[in-house]
């Protein structure tokens, strides 16, 4: 059988919020290592990849590797039934038709049990090559969310330019141009407010703000976001989640042809 108990159940709710608008259905692959998921959006422009390590659960039991084919909208609806301080357990048989979600209140006075039908999903697994990135930008996740929100008011795309002076996000639309520049080590928040840039080569690339905005749904999961950028390559946007794993998104660039 498979059983994974997450004491901080709110994390599962947050992971769900971070993927449900991007991916309609996906396999949750459960192995001894933990729970992982890789899925593209329907237009194959972006990809989400997440890992919840087994040691983040207490207990975690996986007798046999299984894939839980899940409709994200259905699972998101069930996760909304869990309270933020609930302990969440995911459970299934070795050859499952269903998955069970159990929500326990902290004092165990209330136990909710939701059983959901699984789907047979033929998912396409993409091999992501190890890339040497031109620039790796770390910044407060809330700041990245703010930049995507603000520039969405100006245009559909954001041009990310990174050089020795820092990183600039710019958008252009019918009404004009917006530019947001961040300098390295600028303190934006009181805590975790550092902007750091690891620069190998100056780089400039354009991405659709619609998808980056989907990615920022992961903001409640982490204080810091890392953008890894390489010329004419997809950007990797990573949120590392304390004690359990990560959620990583990839987005193909817009390129002049």
């Amino acid at each position: 059988m498979f059983e994974a108990r997450l004491v901080q159940g709110s994390l599962m709710k947050k992971f769900m919020e971070a993927i449900k608008d991007l991916v309609k259905e996906a396999n949750w692959d459960c192995t001894g290592t933990g729970i992982s998921l890789q899925a593209m959006d329907t237009s194959h422009v972006s990809l989400v990849s997440l890992l919840l390590r087994s040691d983040g659960f207490d207990p975690y039991r996986c007798d046999r590797n299984i894939s839980l084919g899940i409709n994200m909208e259905s699972m998101a609806k069930i996760m909304k039934c869990a309270s933020n301080d609930d302990v969440i357990t995911i459970r299934s048989e070795d050859h499952p038709d269903n998955v069970t979600f159990v929500f326990e209140s902290p004092n165990q006075e209330k136990v909710c049990d939701y059983e959901m039908k699984l789907m047979d999903i033929d998912s396409e697994h993409l091999g992501i090559p190890d890339t040497e990135y031109d620039a790796i930008i770390s910044m407060p996740a809330s700041e990245f969310q703010r930049i995507c929100r603000d520039l969405s008011n100006i245009g559909d795309s954001v041009k990310i330019t990174c050089n020795k002076d820092g990183v600039q996000f710019s958008a252009q639309g019918d009404t004009g141009i917006g530019k947001i520049a961040l300098k390295q080590n600028a303190v934006i928040d009181k805590e975790d407010g550092q902007v750091s840039i690891e620069l190998n080569d100056p780089v400039s690339l354009t991405f659709a703000l619609r998808y980056l905005t989907f990615f920022t749904k992961a903001t409640p999961l982490a204080s810091t976001v890392t953008l890894s950028v390489s010329a004419k390559n997809p950007v990797a946007v990573e949120y590392r989640v304390d004690d359990i794993g990560y959620i990583r998104y990839y987005l193909a660039p817009k390129i002049e042809e």
């Binding site: 593209m40 237009s43 194959h44 422009v45 972006s46 990809l47 396409e124 697994h125 993409l126 091999g127 992501i128 090559p129 795309s157 354009t206 659709a208 390559n233 997809p234 990839y250 987005l251 193909a252 660039p253 817009k254 390129i255 002049e256 042809e257």
Partner: peptide, 14 residues
């Protein structure tokens, strides 16, 4: 103009 690329242009199907 700019063309939106597909991820499949970059990542291989495993």
């Amino acid at each position: 103009g700019l063309t939106q690329k597909s991820l499949k242009d970059f990542f291989s199907t495993a």
